[in-house]
Design a protein around this nucleic acid. Structure first.
Lengths: 137, 137
DNA sequence: ATTTGTACCATTTGATGTAAGGGTACAAGT
DNA sequence: ACTTGTACCCTTACATCAAATGGTACAAAT
């Protein structure tokens, strides 16, 4: 598995890592059980910061594309192929986009939307308020 | 109708204007048909910028608390009392808050949410996409 | 004890937003 | 013609965040 990074590209480094590994999974170049280099190893090879690689790994694990097993290292997740198809960015874009469109339609200014958003993002303890109409089962 | 502005208060000037006029309506100090000072007049009296007052008036008219009649000036809206009760900030907070809570719960990072939000707010042409989306896997 | 991912402290750089101010110009209503 | 709200150009000061880097420290697994 070759991972290459383009510093010049506008795309964030951690994002390049994530999409390259997902692509490799989709292309069957990486299959469940395959081992990945350690964070420090990969960071050293690419000459980038450990934290940048760690960030990519963290996201990949959240998406269940990889699996970390402590001391033993990091491996391709059993369901990696299916999970690589899902892009949470698209999901977030969809849900947020609908609400924004609705609010704009109702007359809310972009400033009002932005300010409310900022305030909401400041409190990390947001619990779902379930006063919506389309609650799914 | 006395309008007073506190420059020292952290609250934005245009917001002070809006809330004071809404309060006056709720307190029946301003009733439908009452005339308001012109933007330039009020800005001069309070020694603030025209645009600050104009912004407050624009928001008040959007909320149908006041009504501008071109040359004749600005007046309290017939339904001002009812409309003063509605606070769009609360509404925006509610809708946005639910989506944010849901996305966080689904594992989206705050960065991902913020970035998607920024991208969406950049395109002023957002149309409602009405997709009856449910929970993903 | 060693290596793993991870968490925490910090920093710099660049982008982007709000709020407010200043000036100029214009269509619409009377 | 005159005044209205409004639209556009610009600027300032302030705040926040992303991305990346650097260093230190730690629980878990063997």
């Amino acid at each position: 598995m070759d991972i290459e990074i383009d510093i010049e590209s506008g795309e964030p480094l951690f994002e390049q890592l994530v999409s390259q590994i997902k692509s490799a999974v989709k292309a069957r170049k990486l299959t469940p059980g395959d081992g990945l280099p350690t964070i420090r190893q990969l960071a050293g090879d690419l000459r980038i910061n450990n934290k940048t690689v760690a960030k990519a790994y963290r996201l990949l694990e959240r998406d269940s594309v990889i699996q970390t097993k402590g001391y033993r290292g990091t491996f391709i997740h059993p369901d990696a192929l299916a999970n690589s198809a899902f892009d949470i960015k698209v999901h977030v874009h969809g849900l947020l986009g609908n609400v924004i469109a609705k609010l704009r339609q109702e007359g809310a200014t972009d400033s009002e939307i932005r300010i409310a958003f900022s305030e909401l993002m400041k409190s990390p303890l947001t619990m779902p308020t379930d006063n919506g109409e389309k609650t799914h089962a």
